[in-house]
Design a protein around this nucleic acid. Structure first.
Lengths: 247, 247
DNA sequence: ACCTGAACACCGTTCAAGT
DNA sequence: ACCTGAACACCGTTCAAGT
């Protein structure tokens, strides 16, 4: 029960607050949507719930966004705005690239289900453009051919997003993506692998332990290292005389 | 129009087919769900629509699957069943790994929106287990350390799935993922990049052409090559003294 | 035991009607 | 011009009631 003060006779009331809720705006709709998403995940982000949190009806949102998809694009761009890319330091471009991918994943994962609709959108809104521009600046100091720079600028964010997407689903299933929270599940999976018939599953049973290793960012870092090492090998021309191994 | 034979008088008909529709079964529910997904994408796959196609009500499905999520898992496993992994040929493991990742992407992309729920599920059902087992067999002939094999077995399917996910969204937006269907959109994006103020976006404007290059699988192959080359560099011990790499 | 109609608590989006 | 109540056409899931 809310505490009620003594009753105020109508004639003493303020002349009816201009509006108890602020006027609607795209800005306000987007921040409300992001807040709901952060608090309750994707299920909490419906047009109706956003409108409700703003004290209006869902139909009113359609004056500012064409549809839910467009609202999600704005939310994504707002999150991308948190991504700060440093000025290029050419002699350590590879480490800067890694730091950038790590930051992308961290920021996406910190906003719960944002990663789940971040994939496959070609982000062309303001903040995304700015981030791409600055990420390209770092990649270009590598000496890689332009097309390799362009593909890398696509693939690295895809890798960050895919990992953040997985993070989000782990968090959904276990209430958090902290390893200790889902360790029992991992242990169960490990036992399941170990208990498989070894004649039909010789590799899974033999590798059960490493397949279910659950050590923070190790797997993410492993893949990131593969990608960036590959880029470095393209940037560094093979030593004259020697030929790279291959088929 | 199907060819109809001469009309058969009612008294010659079979004594009323035991049921005009076959009995429900998990098998039947899963194939119906996959058919609807292939035909109409994710929007066509609802519990109600699957039930409808089977001539029953949505509630009846819950005798066979706990919820929609479980149905999707079965659909995914059915699709994974199309994935055929060859026997290992140790001397060309890297090429076999690449072929495997290509096949994963191709199969996922051929089933429209399957990729959209394939991510981040740890597939432990029958077909998935079998595929993982055989993929591990190939990876283990590389000579990579066990943990690297295990991480690779996670990351490579993630890469295939993330790309197939993008394919699916392109197909959704443009009715197909054939490059010629969305070339106008790409051209528009290219012009947009080129028209940006060059002082604020020097890299995007300079790279507009390569950033919007749209040549089939090139980008996918580029990333796949980075990953597999990275694995090869881990498998081949560095040339201490004079170690000849390769076969 | 198995199946299901109807209900519950939601969706995104549209549109006529209000101010 | 801006806003919105109510409606439309959907969802996934539950459950009492039927056979």
């Amino acid at each position: 029960m809310p505490q009620l003060g003594p009753p105020i006779p109508p004639w003493q009331r303020a002349p009816r607050a201009p509006r108890s809720r602020p006027a609607l705006s795209l800005e306000l709709i987007v921040s409300t949507a992001l807040r709901l998403l952060d608090e309750g995940g994707m299920d909490a982000l419906s047009m109706r719930k956003v409108a409700d949190a703003l004290g209006t009806g869902a139909a009113s949102l359609y004056a500012y966004v064409a549809n839910k998809e467009e609202l999600l694009e704005h939310v994504l761009d707002r999150v991308i705005g948190e991504f700060e890319v440093p000025d290029p330091e050419p002699e350590r471009w590879a480490e800067q690239v890694k730091d950038g991918v790590r930051a992308m994943r961290r920021i996406l994962a910190s906003h719960r289900d944002v990663a789940r609709f971040a994939m496959a959108r070609i982000p062309t809104r303001g903040n995304a453009l700015h981030s791409i521009e600055r990420f390209l600046a770092i990649l270009r100091t590598s000496g890689l051919p332009d097309q390799a720079v362009a593909y890398a600028a696509d693939i690295l964010p895809l890798y960050a997003t895919a990992n953040a997407y997985e993070d989000a689903l782990w968090a959904e299933r276990f209430g958090s993506m902290q390893p200790e929270d889902y360790e029992p599940f991992i242990a169960q999976l490990r036992d399941y692998f170990k208990g498989l018939p070894a004649d039909r599953f010789p590799n899974i049973t033999a590798l059960a332990d490493v397949l279910t290793r659950n050590e923070g960012d190790e797997r993410f870092e492993f893949g990131l290292d593969l990608l960036v090492r590959g880029l470095q090998s393209l940037a560094t021309p093979p030593p004259a005389g020697a030929r790279p191994p291959g088929p």
